[in-house]
Structures are given as structure tokens and as C-alpha cells.
């Protein structure tokens, strides 16, 4: 059998050598590919998408989910009101496989825990009712089930808002959004044809090395 089995030679690595690469990583296939190290996201990690209300966080998450869609995976979205489904579908998110839990109230942690067992990707928006110990439980569960949890965190400040989130220190990837630009319209003519977002990625495994990227999405 010459299946390409990725053997991990790193001493102390927890990953089992019997796993295929698709069982250890999600390849990111679209424009977000450049954002992540080696163009992939390790399964069993937490991603924090942080930024202000208008900095393009939701769009980037849609973009991220549509990269998942290629794997034909199910996603669950927790705490989503006011979501633009048309936008999601235009970005390539498969709505047929996108389960929505509108308002979990204070039971966010329980709901996310249940979902993480079945769904490979669970997105939680502004989870303010998760205590630190609950968060640690969730992370343990994520590692076991090799799922991915995406946390959307809307900050109040333009720069450096992500640290205010309790999830900042718990996440493996922190994607911070700063100001974004809109192009194609002027004073009463045209309409938005293009928007750019500025991202900076911090990756826990590489000692919080950060990289800045500007994307047009």
C-alpha cells in the first residue's frame, strides 16, 4: 500500500502516525490559503476571528467555511442572529450543511460541547457566557474529536482588541482584523465592487509569530 502516510518525526508529538493527512489537517483552498501556515489548519484547534463590527470578520468566516465546504463537511453556527445567508451562499458556503442554532442563551458551552462531537466545524459568535473552566473542557473535547471551533469576537477598539477576549490565550490561531476598505463607489455613483480586509495571523505553535496580509474578499 502506498498511501501517503504522514509520519511525524517530531519528538513528543502527540499526533498518531496512523492518521492520514486529511485526518490531521483541513486544507484551506481559497484565498485564505495564504493566511494559514502551509495553507492548512490543524484539526483539533481553536481559531479566534477578532475585529470590530465592520472590519470584515463575518465575511472572513464565510470565506473560511467555504473552504471547508470543499470537503463536504457539516458546519454548525451557534448564536447567529442577523446573518446574511445570501452573502454566505454567494461566498460558496453550502447552506444545506450549515446547521443554525439561533440563540443558545447562557447554555453556549453545553451546546457547543454537544455540537463539537458531531460537527467537524463549529462557529460560535461572541460567546460571553463561557467560563474559563468550561472553555478548558471544550478545548479538551476539541482535541479528542479533532474538530475545529471558530470563535467570532467583535471588539470595541480598532487595534489591539483581541487581547480583551478571554479566548485570546486559549486559541491556536488568532486572526485579527483591522480596518477594511471599500472600493467602487464615490459620491452618489457606482456601488461596492471590492472590499479589502487587513488581517494579521498569530499562530501559537510558532511562538505567536505573526504575519500581516491584505485580502480582497
Amino acid at each position: 500500500m502506498n498511501y501517503s502516510i504522514e509520519r511525524s518525526h517530531i519528538a513528543g508529538s502527540l499526533s498518531s502516525p496512523q492518521l492520514l493527512s486529511s485526518q490531521r489537517y483541513f486544507e484551506v483552498t481559497n484565498c485564505l490559503r495564504d493566511v494559514f501556515p502551509l495553507g492548512r489548519v490543524q484539526r483539533g484547534s481553536v481559531l479566534l476571528f477578532a475585529g470590530m463590527q465592520n472590519s470584515g470578520v463575518t465575511s472572513t468566516v464565510f470565506e473560511f467555511l467555504s473552504a471547508m465546504e470543499i470537503r463536504n463537511d457539516w458546519c454548525a453556527l451557534v448564536g447567529f442572529e442577523n446573518l446574511g445567508f445570501l452573502a454566505a451562499s454567494e461566498k460558496g458556503v453550502d447552506l444545506k450543511k450549515l446547521a443554525l442554532i439561533p440563540d443558545p442563551g447562557k447554555a453556549v458551552a453545553q451546546v457547543a460541547a454537544v455540537l463539537l462531537e458531531a460537527f467537524p466545524v463549529v462557529v460560535v459568535k461572541n460567546p460571553r457566557f463561557i467560563s474559563r473552566s468550561q472553555a478548558r473542557n471544550l478545548i479538551a473535547r476539541i482535541k479528542v474529536h479533532k474538530s475545529i471551533m471558530v470563535v467570532i469576537w467583535h471588539t470595541l477598539h480598532v487595534n489591539g482588541g483581541a487581547e480583551s477576549s478571554p479566548w485570546f490565550s486559549l486559541s491556536d490561531y488568532v486572526i485579527e482584523h483591522s480596518i477594511s476598505g471599500f472600493y467602487g463607489l464615490g459620491e452618489g455613483d457606482g456601488f461596492i465592487k471590492e472590499r479589502t480586509v487587513s488581517l494579521s495571523l498569530n499562530y501559537k505553535r510558532s511562538n505567536w509569530m505573526s504575519r500581516n496580509i491584505q485580502l480582497s474578499i
Binding site: L95, L100, A107
Partner: peptide
């Protein structure tokens, strides 16, 4: 082969926690 069984199991458990129906959007 999708893990439909797993997905529906999880969603019915979520419903029992939250008390209102989870849903899918249909455009």
C-alpha cells in the same frame, strides 16, 4: 456516506438544551 445519524443526534440534544428548534436556512 454522511454521518447524518450523528448530526441529527447532536441537533436533537441541542434542542433539548436550548428549548427551541435549530434550523437550516433555505434560500
Amino acid at each position: 456516506r454522511t454521518s447524518l445519524a450523528k448530526v441529527s443526534q447532536a441537533l436533537s440534544r441541542v434542542d433539548s438544551i436550548v428549548g427551541k428548534g435549530s434550523a437550516f436556512a433555505k434560500l
